[in-house]
């Protein structure tokens, strides 16, 4: 009896941390489910315009992205401030779009090619000239399904 008593007298036992992993795992799973892998590092500033009539992009694996915007500060010395196109991880011109679409197509199953969508993530303040050139390039390589990426407009 005396043995037990000495143990209890040592003060309050430490808080059990056994449930901590469960809590952290719960958080982990939440983030794993609700987020997507970052595609690439953006070298340009893209602030997409807001719109209310938006549709969600289905099947993300079939979406290829084209980014347009003015280069970030650290790239402005080389690339200037004029809006530029970014494909994958590098700056590009409209001539590169054809190769990009071809390589995106080759990476996918042949049956899925007609369902492929190109998402245009274009900065609000870009002039339409660049966008029109991209659209023409896409038309030339027959990638007709496009999506103008937008933010949710909160007012409606």
């Amino acid at each position: 009896m005396s043995k037990f008593r000495t143990k209890k007298d040592k003060g309050t036992p430490p808080i059990s941390t056994a449930s901590l992993p469960d809590i952290v795992f719960m958080l982990l799973f939440f983030f794993m489910v609700s987020t997507t892998m970052r595609q690439q590092d953006l070298k340009i500033r893209v602030h997409v315009p807001a719109a209310s009539e938006i549709q969600k992009l289905e099947k993300k694996s079939l979406v290829s992205y084209i980014y347009v915007g003015s280069p970030l500060q650290q790239y402005q010395k080389i690339f200037g401030t004029e809006p530029r196109i970014q494909l994958n991880d590098a700056f590009a011109t409209t001539n590169d779009i054809r190769d990009y679409i071809t390589s995106e197509r080759e990476a996918r199953d042949e049956k899925e090619v007609p369902y492929m969508t190109t998402s245009l993530k274009v900065d609000e303040y870009t002039k339409m000239g660049v966008v029109t050139d991209i659209k023409q390039a896409l038309r030339k390589c027959n990638a007709l399904k496009i999506n103008y990426s937008t933010r949710m407009l909160s007012s409606e």
């Binding site: 952290v24 958080l27 982990l28 983030f31 794993m32 609700s34 987020t35 997507t36 892998m37 970052r38 997409v48 719109a51 009539e53 938006i54 549709q55 969600k56 992009l57 993300k60 979406v63 969508t117 998402s119 245009l120 659209k135 896409l138 038309r139 030339k140 027959n142 007709l144 399904k145 496009i146 999506n147 103008y148 990426s149 937008t150 949710m152």
Partner: peptide, 25 residues
Amino acid sequence: LLLIFFLVTTTMDTDSGISRKLPPM
């Protein structure tokens, strides 16, 4: 460690926008 890895490598944004179909050439 896993949690922080996922926090860093993932983004929350859901992709949505106005879908259009371009006319063929």
